[in-house]
Design a protein around this nucleic acid. Sequence first.
DNA 1: ACCAGATATCTGGTTAACCAGTTATGTCCT
DNA 2: AGGACATAACTGGTTAACCAGATATCTGGT
Lengths: 257, 257
Amino acid sequence: MEKTNLFKAVRTPDLSDLVARQIRTLVVDGKLLPGEKLPSERELASRFEVGRGHVRSAIQKLEFYGLVKTYPQRGTIVEGVSNVGLRRLCSDMLGLEEMPLAVVSELRKILEVNAARLAAQRASQEDATRIRRTWEAHGHKVEAGGPAMSEDSAFHNAIAKASGNPMLAAFIQILSEEIINLTIDYDACRDSRPAEAMKEHEAVLLAIEAGDVAAAGQAMTRHLDSSDQQYGFESIVDEVKGRVSVAGLGVQLQGSE
Amino acid sequence: MEKTNLFKAVRTPDLSDLVARQIRTLVVDGKLLPGEKLPSERELASRFEVGRGHVRSAIQKLEFYGLVKTYPQRGTIVEGVSNVGLRRLCSDMLGLEEMPLAVVSELRKILEVNAARLAAQRASQEDATRIRRTWEAHGHKVEAGGPAMSEDSAFHNAIAKASGNPMLAAFIQILSEEIINLTIDYDACRDSRPAEAMKEHEAVLLAIEAGDVAAAGQAMTRHLDSSDQQYGFESIVDEVKGRVSVAGLGVQLQGSE
DNA sequence: ACCAGATATCTGGTTAACCAGTTATGTCCT
DNA sequence: AGGACATAACTGGTTAACCAGATATCTGGT
């Protein structure tokens, strides 16, 4: 251990960062609702007692995350939390703009199947009832005939949370949003698909409640596989350098096949 | 389909974004090496023919990603690609600051094991030789007795790349860096650990070369499990609400055991 | 009472000048 | 020559003023 480590580098905090953090907290805590207009940059500057430049760069940072959106000469309005931050990060850093659906879907499958397995292994009583409740809510919405996208997501997110790994849960949530965005054009959930999805969900639910790790993983695999078949994967597959074979997408887990 | 969709929204491109993109390209393409100093903001401004403010915000964005670092009154120097972008994103958006090592490690295991399986399934001849070469380089470094952290990472990254899923590869790389950062304090790789790691790596390598999906996954599982035992996991486990049991960390994949 | 049009005010966007430092250059003495 | 010191040039950081466009307010006529 070096002695120099005793003296930790002290650095003047970035004012714009502090401002951004305050505003972000206000948004995620619901003090500022989506659609609301932020005070003008000048007013924020005087309120925070910093220069307008700092407020400005803070707002730019928040806009990067998609938390707010500023319209020239009109003001900046709150947008709410979303995954545009990850999108930007992927496109800016990895040079991966517009990830093919096959790639995102495959990654999600890996994460969700393992989340289901972990949930079967670790879910508390409380977790289990929450999962079951979201499943029931999903069923009611489907019976009513309405679109049930958000209820579907809620079910998956409940499982992810029950996995006990918050980072895994966060990634799953982000990827789910991404999948929804990518599949919106494909107008999924047609015909009898919702009913099928409910049955597949039920299999996952029962396996988790029973604490059957392998069954949970298999049930989730089946569910996501049949979801994939909804979208025209053949049309995407060549974008991934021809190396992602359609056949390969089904079995990235379990010796089962 | 709505008619309004025919007219796609056209928006004046953000100048700072274009500048940032150019600089980023220069860095990732190796035209600008880490340690080099960027031209001054004023010179960049006149070269790009934009206002200094745009150059300024572009540099701020790049600094957010950790691609460059600017020292007041001295200039901004190139840092290179890293994972600080995702770190910031996690802490700023998900509120996940300072993830426990157990959580990150578990997620990495999920990703890496499946990457190994996909690699065994899809690796081209070229991929296979690249993996073998990194393994050999790692071996030479270990024999020489020096620290072989980066060679170790190179081996894992080569496998991740061979998975054919660039997003999966990117996440693995990011998490690997995170693990390294978190374990730097634990001073890992002590005693005979490097030799063991080489043998475990060899098992993964052979399985991939043989195209044996199940064996690749199992070998990678074994490797990461024994890596985990290096660090004092018991001391971390309670940070995750007591729900992440040590026993559970070993088997999140395969019905094996 | 109501509406059209002019006007004042406020918005974010942009620029240029200035500040406090650092670094490079030049100069003078030894 | 060589080194210490003063000076000039340049760095990113910050501020204030100005710009064009959008909005709100007021005014006058109908």
